[in-house]
Design a protein around this nucleic acid. Structure first.
Lengths: 148, 148
DNA sequence: TTATTTGTAACTATGCTTGTTACAATATGG
DNA sequence: CCATATTGTAACAAGCATAGTTACAAATAA
């Protein structure tokens, strides 16, 4: 289980919150739907709080709610909030700087990486949390409802 | 060093091969530029062979060469050859199927995943290995030369 | 036959993600 | 003020993928 599923879980969490607009939702409750430990949920909620997508409160009536409505939250914001990193990684070790290709390939790949990340962000920004909820409600069969 | 840099290394390898069109290039030589072990290179070359991007030969005059010219190899083909997987992962464990959201969220995210992967593939297909080499030759400062 | 290179297996080391327990900090309500 | 409940967070273990390394069989050329 080393694959990064934080974005998927984050979308799941936010969908849960969106469906419970009245009142705070507890991490334990969300964990029951995601089928994981509540701490895993709380760790993600910290990141969603920092991104101002949700508001959490401690205390006996505490919990978490959306910071704004579901159609004002797009998937790019969620993706960036949980900082899923890049589509591909650059070299682990630096290439040989004495080789003309090794010397410059990293810069080229870094620029490409930025370009791809931008493309992913633009595509994700075409969908809102509201779109996701509509898809879930209709059985999850298609993913075509895009924001106008 | 757990991040997947196989696509980056694969591009590096192919750039090396493209710059040495005459004759076979040995994995040890490529490893010297990438700054890693030759077996790491050979493992990637196996995948590039399977994708028919390169041709390898054993024996004392063996090595690897491009299967076609650099402007006939686009970055999507390289990306698919090394099967870098998906931009984000789905849930590790299955969500709670008794929850209306848990029951359908996976299908929605799976469709989204396919959509994003398609977008990445389309973007990568706009660049060829030849474009990469031109970038490297010009110092790697920009990434803007796109295939017509 | 000898030398050289790829292909591949096996093993280790490293690091990330997730799961889990524990507990301080915070907030509510009696 | 006290009891209760929840978040925030630290600490640690488990599982898994990537990368590095050694070793050797298979293939090929001279």
């Amino acid at each position: 289980m080393a694959a990064n599923s934080q974005f998927s879980i984050a979308v799941h969490i936010l969908a849960m919150l969106a469906k419970s607009r009245e009142g705070n939702v507890k991490s334990e409750y969300i964990a029951g739907s995601v089928n994981t430990n509540a701490v895993v949920i709380r760790r993600l909620l910290v990141q969603l709080n920092r991104a101002h997508l949700v508001i959490s409160q401690t205390g006996s009536t505490g919990g978490t709610r959306l910071a704004r409505s579901a159609d004002e939250i797009d998937l790019e914001a969620i993706y960036k909030a949980v900082s899923c990193g890049e589509v591909f990684a650059l070299h682990g070790k630096s290439p040989n700087q004495d080789c003309p290709i090794g010397k410059n390939i990293e810069a080229v790949l870094c620029n490409l990486q930025k370009e791809i990340d931008k493309t992913v962000g633009e595509k994700l920004s075409q969908y809102t949390l509201q779109n996701v909820i509509e898809m879930v409600d209709s059985g999850g069969s298609e993913f075509s409802l895009q924001r106008v």
